[in-house]
Design a protein around this nucleic acid. Structure first.
Lengths: 190, 190
DNA sequence: GGCTTTTTTGAGCGATCACTCAAGAATATA
DNA sequence: TATATTCTTGAGTGATCGCTCAAAAAAGCC
């Protein structure tokens, strides 16, 4: 009976993710979103409900795509090789809207406002840390990392290093490739 | 002949730094600043000119205080001990308005807007990196770090790790103390 | 105390914020 | 083709944004 939407919802969420990722929550106005999504306010609110709701969809997509990418890498190269590859790949990825991690940016921007999206981003970061821990465990059972190391601790440090790396990659005048290489190299000493 | 201001300018800049540090640039409104500085708009603009001008003063104060603190530590404990102490101190500092680095937060928030304050924050970060490099050089001439290491590279990695650590310390559910201990410990292997 | 100079006050500026809603356009079913 | 249902449009909402400015209040100098 009805008229169908002229857009692909997933594509819109991807475009929203990219501009939110680049410009942040406060830095992205509805005018920005209307322009990049090619939607008037009425359609926007019919489709997504609010700016915050779309931001959350963008966060989930960001996290899900990252998880899928990591799992695909592990499938192809194995656990340790993935952990060593990932730092370089994540700052070299030309398709990415920004170098810095969207989840980390969101935590930094919205924690002081006690905004629910900050908690959501932090929860997604904890899930990512758990995935890293899983990879460290797999590397141990592959015999590539000593069993004496605590995979949780390795993952915690690895994620912290990644966050620092990705922010460094966003800066001018910093050789982030060198940092990525050192993070990868330090995994050889485990 | 004239009337004197009733406030201490340096105190105001400190209070502005703290709220900007916590809430960021966009997250801090003039109403927030008027409340925390106890100033009406007219006085504010007479004293500082603009929100951006005060933010820059806050950035400079943040960086200068950090540099002074680091130098005092080095004076008291020596270069290597300072580098090992600093990660823990920076996330334990109860007087700080936030755990994450204000310069890193500013770069993340304002780079996409191509705001001049992002470049200023990045420049101050580069100065901090140079100070770290100086400490690594001093540790080398103290015989505490092998001369074969490039102090510039060590400083670059150290700063990246610190940025990651301090963001991790801002998050819920992350044992930042453990990360700080590992960063310090890794300096023993140089 | 009178005068000069500065600070302080606060109403209010235009612009932008996220968002609403009634009317019109478009499309799948009958 | 007629009808029902949904999507699209865009002017307009009140609130808040950073900021201005003229008038009032305060303090140092004679």
């Amino acid at each position: 009976m009805p008229r169908r939407p002229s857009y692909d919802r997933d594509t819109l969420i991807e475009r929203a993710r990219d501009i939110f990722w680049r410009q942040g929550w406060a830095g992205t106005s509805l005018k920005d979103l209307e322009a990049v999504l090619n939607m008037k306010p009425g359609s926007f609110y019919a489709a997504f409900g609010s700016k915050d709701a779309l931001f959350e969809l963008a966060l989930e997509k960001y996290a899900a795509d990252g998880a899928a990418r990591l799992e695909a890498l592990a499938e192809e190269h194995g656990a340790l090789a993935t952990l060593k590859l990932y730092p370089r790949l994540v700052i070299e990825n030309g398709a990415a809207a920004a170098k810095a991690c969207m989840l980390a940016k969101t935590v930094l921007e919205l924690t002081a406002r006690e905004h629910a999206l900050a908690d959501r981003a932090n929860a997604l970061l904890l899930e990512a840390e758990a995935r890293f821990a899983g990879l460290f465990r797999r590397a141990q059972s592959d015999g590539d990392i000593l069993e004496s190391h605590d995979p949780q601790a390795l993952a915690r440090r690895y994620q912290s290093d990644l966050i620092g790396l990705r922010i460094s990659a966003e800066r001018d005048g910093v050789d982030a490739q060198a940092i990525a290489a050192e993070i990868a190299e330090s995994l050889n000493r485990l």
